[in-house]
Nucleic acid binder design. Structure first.
Length: 192
DNA sequence: ATGATGATTAACT
DNA sequence: GTTAATCATCATG
C-alpha cells in the first residue's frame, strides 16, 4: 500500500507536471476520521469504487485534495497524497501556484500545482491517460510513521507516512510534535 | 430548508 | 500565534 516513491504525473493541454510522492496518509473504514466511516454517500462513493481510482474532494471550500483508492471494490478506504517532490514541469507548477517555491509540500498545494480538481474524481490512475501514477523505484532512505495532521478524530492512529529527511513534506515530524499536531512522536518503519 | 463542519493555506499581528 | 477565505456535503427539522 505504500505509494511513497511512486511518481504522480499529470498531462494536460497546459503541459505536463510530475512529482515523487514523499508523504501520504491512510484512511480506513473503521477509522472515525475516514470519510467513508459512516458508509457510502454522494461525496465518498469513489472510495468504494476499487483500487487505482482517484478520490478528489473539496476541503474547506478552497482546496482540492487527492486520494488514491487502494482497497477492493466495496471497501471505503483511501490514501491521501500529502506532498510531492517536484520532478518535471516546474515552470508550469510555478505559474499555477503563483510563486517560486513551496510548490507541492502540502495536500492542497500539490493539486493546485498539478491542476487537479473535482473533475478528476473517479478517474482511473492506472489507465495512463491524463492523471496517472507510475511505480518509480523503491523510496530511497527510511520511511517514518507519525500520527496524522489536521484531523479531530482518530488522532492516535500512526498512519501518516513520509520519507525521512525529505524536504518537500507538509510538516517535518519534529516540528509537528513541537506544534502539538501530533499526539505521539514519530517512529521508524521497516523499508518493506 | 437550514445550519454546522472541515484530511488547508496564506496573510496577518 | 491567529484568522479569514469559502462551499460542498451531511445531519437534522
Amino acid at each position: 500500500m505504500d505509494l511513497l516513491g511512486c511518481v504522480l504525473i499529470q498531462d494536460s493541454p497546459e503541459g505536463t507536471a510530475s512529482g515523487l510522492i514523499v508523504e501520504t496518509e491512510a484512511y480506513r473504514p473503521e477509522d472515525p476520521a475516514c470519510h467513508a466511516y459512516r458508509g457510502p454517500t454522494m461525496r465518498n462513493r469513489t472510495m468504494f469504487g476499487g483500487p487505482g481510482l482517484a478520490y478528489v474532494y473539496l476541503s474547506y471550500g478552497v482546496h482540492n485534495l487527492l486520494n488514491v483508492v487502494c482497497e477492493r471494490e466495496g471497501v471505503g478506504s483511501a490514501v491521501l497524497i500529502r506532498a510531492l517532490r517536484p520532478l518535471g514541469g516546474l515552470e508550469l507548477m510555478r505559474r499555477r501556484r503563483g510563486r517560486e517555491s513551496a510548490l507541492c509540500n502540502g495536500p492542497g498545494k500539490l493539486t493546485q500545482a498539478l491542476g487537479i480538481d473535482l473533475s478528476h474524481d473517479g478517474h482511473d490512475l492506472l489507465s495512463g491517460g491524463g492523471l496517472a501514477i507510475s511505480p518509480g523505484g523503491p523510496p530511497e532512505g527510511e520511511i517514518v510513521a507519525t500520527t496524522r495532521i489536521g484531523i479531530t478524530r482518530g488522532t492516535e492512529l500512526p498512519w501518516r507516512y513520509l520519507i525521512l529527511g525529505e524536504e518537500n513534506v507538509s510538516v517535518p515530524p519534529g516540528l509537528a510534535v513541537e506544534r502539538g499536531l501530533h499526539r505521539s512522536g514519530w517512529t521508524l518503519r521497516s523499508p518493506l
